[in-house]
Design a protein around this nucleic acid. Structure first.
Lengths: 204, 204
DNA sequence: ACCATAATGCGACTTTTGTCTCATGTCAAG
DNA sequence: CTTGACATGAGACAAAAGTCGCATTATGGT
């Protein structure tokens, strides 16, 4: 089995696992929707072994490494403390946007898998979504947080979560047929409007 | 076969088709993720026949009737011409919101299916998404459209498309863990801010 | 270098999904 | 009432998705 992390042939297990994950990511990047068989073959591992590590392709996809740097709050916003809140949030969004464009296919498959689970009412299960965005949003707003009331802050974060991430990309591309650049423009405007409205003195 | 609509036993064909669709909708509403087999059995039809009408369960789900009234622009906004743009848009959103809550499971499955297709780059295929929301948004803004510039109007519609629909529900529930009522509050605020900003005289 | 054991590969088997053919029953036009 | 077209059901078939047991190989400790 491939369970205990403490003893045994830890090295070998880690290698196969990594091999499977990177193979899955590679196949998706090539535009395929790989089956477990495909991934196993690409990782030069037998099908049975693949199933020993992951119960399904979806489980594999969720853990598969994303292409390029996944935006890290510090890396993106470090040294930018002087910028205004809207600029900082937009900066964060820009980096997540780029990441989403690069990993479009994989993120779509991950989202699809999570939707199929939640459609059955499996909310009480294990991790539903990774939620990278909230951390990023909060980091961007951190220097200016004290200038926003508690209630307004929560509202703004939730609103921005709608603008960040895969789901907005899906709406822009699949529903509206809008390209990446235009999508960025619109999101930039939304961020500006939402953040400004949250900062203004006594507006509604 | 079940192809030609002109001659033959049109009546019977329509009945089976309808039976399949309603059976599928019913099963989903019961919280299941039905297979073609399940739907066929529920519709009291052989599996082969089910496949004669729909190539897959997904195709069935897409056409399956949604529970309750799917918001119609006229029904929701008729006689409300006196309201301001933000109020009208919010009214439209409220009706779509309610519909999304009622049909959560089915809409999620539909979204998941479309994501799996677009992940493969099948953009050039047939209908990607139904896009009920754009019609609703444009109808809500129609009475005030002349007060908004062309560029601003397009931007506003796209931004609102992010707030309307299933995707936002998914973000609120699955990513943020927010309940329906709170989600409505936040969307209401977003709509207000976005519409107002688009109407203001010379703001940015 | 050797050995016990853990990871792997292989192949058999089951279930699910989707296709195809053919016999059967039924509708509708004459 | 008869007949021919046509939708359906039943079952055979193939491919894909998982599972399982057992033989084989490689690894790490001695």
């Amino acid at each position: 089995m491939a369970k205990r992390t403490t003893s045994g042939r830890v090295n070998q297990r880690l290698r196969t696992r990594k091999e499977l994950l990177s193979a899955a990511a590679r196949l998706v990047r090539e535009g395929r929707t790989p089956s477990m068989d495909d991934v196993a073959e690409a990782a030069m591992v037998s099908r049975a072994t693949a199933y020993r590590y992951f119960p399904s392709v979806e489980a594999l996809l969720v853990e598969a490494p994303l292409d390029g740097a996944v935006p890290d709050a510090d890396a993106v916003l470090g040294g930018k403390e002087a910028l205004g809140p809207a600029e900082r949030v937009d900066l964060a969004e820009a980096s997540l946007h780029e990441m989403c464009v690069r990993n479009g296919a994989q993120l779509r498959l991950m989202l699809a898998a999570s939707l199929e689970r939640t459609a059955r009412g499996e909310h009480g299960g294990v991790p539903v979504r990774q939620n990278r965005r909230t951390r990023l949003i909060e980091a961007a707003l951190a220097p200016h947080r004290r200038r926003i009331g508690r209630e307004r802050y929560g509202r703004l974060c939730a609103a921005l979560a709608l603008v960040f991430g895969v789901e907005s990309m899906v709406v822009f591309e699949d529903v509206l047929g809008i390209n990446d650049a235009r999508a960025r423009e619109i999101k930039r405007w939304m961020i500006d409007v939402l953040v400004r409205s949250s900062m203004e003195g006594s507006r509604r």
